[in-house]
Amino acid sequence: MRKISCLFALLLLLLSTSMLHAQGDSNMGDTMRSNGRIYVVITVILVILAGLFLYLIRLDRKMSKLEKNN
């Protein structure tokens, strides 16, 4: 379980960096830079929320496991 999640995190990191490099000349970059670059702020907040939710989901799963063992 741990190995899989580590691998998943690494993959996500690699994907995100390659996406950032690709933004320089693609349409995605244009969208991100439009409207005073507000989409960048939205992406940043969504990443924070995603981290928060993943943390909560993990805690929830851990609690369920503990409750089962008792």
């Binding site: 507000i38 702020v41 907040i45």
Partner: peptide
């Protein structure tokens, strides 16, 4: 122990951030 309202919370908050800023 139900998960549907947890999913609802996630969806509503993502909507809040995206729609709230746009």
């Amino acid at each position: 122990y139900k998960s549907w309202w947890k999913v609802l919370s996630v969806v509503l908050l993502i909507y809040t951030v995206v729609a709230g800023l746009l």
